[in-house]
Amino acid sequence: MPTVRTWDELFEGCEFEAVHLELRDRYDVDDEYFADWLAGRLTAATHAGRWSSFCSTVAAATARGVQVRRLRVVSMPASEYIRYEHAGTPATVRSGEEVRWLDRAAAPDVHLPITDLWVFDRSLVRWNIFNGDDRFLRFDDVEDPGLAARLVDSFDSAWKRGVPHQDFVI
């Protein structure tokens, strides 16, 4: 079984670009932070705190000049989980991540893969594999510059249609 690198290893080794494509309307809805958010108990600070480790990693990468972009393709009206993600996104944006949102119905002609993914430096693809109950199963890392370049080209075509986080209304 191939070794799966940690997030820190991936970002520390990244030289110029990391892109993240999210295509699901729900993720692991048993998340304790999500339950607190639904109940009105999650403060903005706690929400940001949940992502502090990731934000530190992204901030270090962007400080070195790495561009980190995330595109969320979502159905509208948004699910409660997407509303929750939207509310927590300012923390990652402050860390240097660029985030755009794309209404799925506004881009039926955009060709995208069917699975969430990361691409690092147009060489490594990290597939995010989930089950039918929205639970994360595993990462599959593939070193394939040709595949990675095609995926980033698809990402870029959708990115152009995406709405920057601060302008996207849920």
Rank of each mutant, 00 (worst) to 15 (best):
E98L: 10
R104S: 08
A91F: 09
T43L: 07
Y27T: 06
I170Q: 06
L124H: 04
L71M: 10
T3D: 13
W159A: 00
L102S: 03
V58A: 07
G146W: 08
R135P: 08
T57E: 13
V110L: 00
D109G: 13
Y84M: 02
V93N: 05
D156Y: 05
N128F: 14
R69L: 09
G162Y: 04
T46W: 07
A39S: 13
D30T: 14
M1Y: 14
Q166P: 05
E32Q: 12
D30I: 12
D167K: 10
R26D: 13
S157Y: 01
L151C: 03
G132D: 06
I129D: 02
F130Y: 12
D116R: 00
R72G: 03
F155Q: 04
E17S: 11
E12W: 10
H165E: 11
G49V: 09
E17F: 01
E85T: 12
P2C: 10
V142M: 03
R72W: 02
G40M: 07
E80I: 03
D116K: 03
T62F: 03
V163G: 00
F130L: 08
Y81D: 00
R135L: 09
T43H: 09
T62H: 05
V125L: 04
D116V: 04
D31G: 01
F54H: 09
R5Q: 08
L10I: 14
